[in-house]
C-alpha cells in the first residue's frame, strides 16, 4: 500500500496549463511519483499533451514524446522493444491518452500492443469527451450528456449511446493487469500504479477524470463529482488480475443518479424520462457487475 509520507516530494509534472481543478494534473503527477524518473511518457494529441509541451515551457521532468493521435499503443511498443533490444530493463514506458485517443482512434493500436503482450503502462484518463477540441462526444461519453456535437434539443436528449466498456475490452484480451480508477480516489489509483510497476507485459488503467470545463461544474468540485460518480454507480473501481475481477468499492446501496447528474451542466437538460433511461442503464450494468464480479467472488 502506498503511504503518503513515503512519496517523493519531486514533481515530475509541474506548471502545466490545464484548466483549474482538472484531475489530469493529479493523475499525471501521482503516476510519475510512483514510477519515478526512469520513465518515458508517450503523449498522443489530447489535453495532456497540449497543456504540457508548449515550447519552451516543458512541464514533464522525465523524457517525453508527443505523438500521433492514433498510435499510442504502437509507440509504446516501439519504445519498449527499442529498450529491450539495447538491454535496458529498468525503464517504464507510460502512455497518457484521453478517452477519444484510447477508445476511438487509438483502440486498434492499443489492442495490437496488448495482444502482443508488449511491456508498457497505459493510462486512459477519461473526461468523457474530446475536451481538447471543445467538448465533442467520444465513445466514452455517457448517455444523455450534452456535448457540442451531441447537443440536446427539441428532438434530442444529447448523447444517444451509453459508454463503451473499455475495461471489459481489455479483459477480453486477457491482459496481465487492467483496472478502473478515479482521480477522486488518489490512493486507490496509486496502489494500482504501484502494481503496474512490478508486472511485466501490458498494464492498463482506465481512470475517470472529471472535467470542470466540459462537464460544467465549479473547479473545486472535481473530487466531489468523482466520488459521486462512484457512489451513484455511474462509475466503478475495479481491477482485473490473474483472470479475476475484483471490485475495490462496492456501495451497499447506490445513491440516486440525480445526485450526480444535477451538479453538472451537461446533464441539466434531462427530464424525468431521460433520467429514468440513465437509471435503468446504470441498474442493468450493476446487475451484470454483481452477477459476474461480486457474487461469483464470494
Amino acid at each position: 500500500m502506498v503511504k503518503v509520507k513515503n512519496l517523493t516530494d519531486k514533481e515530475y509534472l509541474y506548471g502545466h496549463k490545464a484548466c483549474p481543478g482538472c484531475g489530469l494534473g493529479t493523475i499525471g503527477r501521482l503516476a510519475l511519483k510512483i514510477l519515478g524518473e526512469r520513465t518515458i511518457v508517450a503523449l498522443p494529441a489530447s489535453c495532456m499533451s497540449t497543456v504540457t509541451t508548449q515550447y519552451p515551457q516543458m512541464n514533464y521532468s522525465v523524457p517525453s514524446l508527443t505523438m500521433a493521435f492514433a498510435g499510442t499503443g504502437a509507440v509504446l511498443t516501439g519504445m519498449s522493444a527499442g529498450l529491450k533490444a539495447q538491454g535496458v530493463t529498468d525503464v517504464h514506458v507510460l502512455g497518457l491518452a484521453g478517452d477519444g485517443g484510447t477508445a476511438d482512434i487509438g483502440l486498434q493500436a492499443l489492442s495490437g500492443a496488448v495482444e502482443r503482450g508488449d511491456d508498457f503502462i497505459y493510462i486512459c484518463y477519461d473526461n468523457e469527451a474530446y475536451m481538447n477540441t471543445g467538448v465533442q462526444r467520444s465513445s466514452l461519453t455517457p448517455i444523455g450528456a450534452n456535448t457540442t456535437n451531441s447537443p440536446s434539443g427539441t428532438a434530442s436528449y444529447g448523447e444517444k449511446k451509453p459508454k463503451k466498456n473499455l475495461f471489459e475490452i481489455m479483459i477480453a484480451h486477457r491482459i496481465p493487469y487492467a483496472a478502473t480508477a478515479s482521480s477522486a480516489y488518489p490512493y486507490d489509483f496509486m496502489n494500482k500504479m504501484e502494481k503496474t510497476k512490478s508486472l511485466r507485459g501490458p498494464k492498463f488503467i482506465h481512470i475517470m477524470c472529471p472535467c470542470p470545463t466540459g462537464w460544467g461544474f465549479a473547479s473545486d468540485l472535481t473530487v466531489e463529482i468523482g466520488k459521486l460518480a462512484v457512489e451513484t454507480g455511474m462509475w466503478y473501481l475495479a481491477e482485473y488480475e490473474n483472470g479475476k475481477v475484483k471490485m475495490n468499492v462496492i456501495p451497499k446501496t447506490l445513491k440516486p443518479v440525480e445526485e450526480y447528474l444535477i451538479k453538472q451542466r451537461r446533464f441539466r437538460h434531462l427530464n424525468e424520462d431521460t433520467i429514468k433511461l440513465i437509471r435503468e442503464h446504470r441498474d442493468s450494468e450493476w446487475r451484470i457487475i454483481r452477477e459476474r464480479w461480486v457474487l461469483s467472488n464470494c
Binding site: A18, P20, L24, G25, L30, P186
Partner: peptide, 8 residues
Amino acid sequence: CWVLCPEG
C-alpha cells in the same frame, strides 16, 4: 491536499 492538488 498535497496528494490531490492537480498542480502539485
